[in-house]
Design a protein around this nucleic acid. Structure first.
Lengths: 110, 110
DNA sequence: CCTATAGTTGGATAGTTGTCAAACAATAAA
DNA sequence: TTTATTGTTTGACAACTATCCAACTATAGG
């Protein structure tokens, strides 16, 4: 099992995180990771409407911004949200973005 | 007093807000507005290290993203954060960004 | 070894962005 | 009316971005 290069928690920059999340394709990937937890690039990038190489660039952007953690096992690469790291660095930020991005669950009352 | 064109609250888009906030110069402007409330463009843009025309473009970006409200009085333009609009549209988002962007106040205990 | 799978890399391209400089517009004040 | 102030617009330009396609790498399985 190999870990790809990532920024350390204290080196995650706010503007880079915001920028990473500001692209609709990347935001969708983050939403999927939030809902399903760890998943391979293929699954995360399924039906995104972009070429696989484009998706690959987005994976890298998310990883380099410190939003996701990527580890390789065999020929698969697993991505997951760095929830704890982001929460400790920027409390409430990821939750606020996910709340804003997700449709309100059915049955939720205002 | 004239109001410049702004997106309505329900038309504020998450990705556009995130993108607007992802530039260091614009984030600094937002931080100043959060600290001092309404202020003129000149004051908001003082010592940003960019040309005034560059700052002007950033004002427009913030306005068009729905982050700030701009009204003209005489030859001055006053900008203010659309805190309530952003809070109702994306609860907790602006606060999380400001908390992340601001240095911890002296005397605050972890 | 051969083939399929998973994902990255590099090239090309079209569009966007941040920046400055210079000119402009609009209001206020002398 | 003339001048100063406030901010925008336009043009230019370099840098960056999102995208696709084709080629590539690496691992797994026959």
């Amino acid at each position: 099992m190999r870990l790809l290069p990532h920024p350390s928690t204290e080196n995650i920059q706010l503007t880079e995180v915001l920028r990473a999340l500001s692209d609709p394709v990347r935001l969708e990937i983050v939403i999927r990771l939030a809902a399903a937890g760890e998943m391979t690039c293929t699954v995360a990038g399924d039906d995104l409407g972009v070429h696989k190489s484009t998706a690959s660039h987005h994976y890298r952007t998310l990883r380099e911004a410190g939003v996701v953690l990527t580890k390789q096992e065999g020929r698969l690469k697993y991505m997951s949200l760095r929830r704890d790291d982001l929460e400790s660095r920027f409390p409430g930020l990821l939750d606020a973005v996910l709340t804003a991005a997700l449709p309100l669950p059915a049955g939720a009352h205002a």
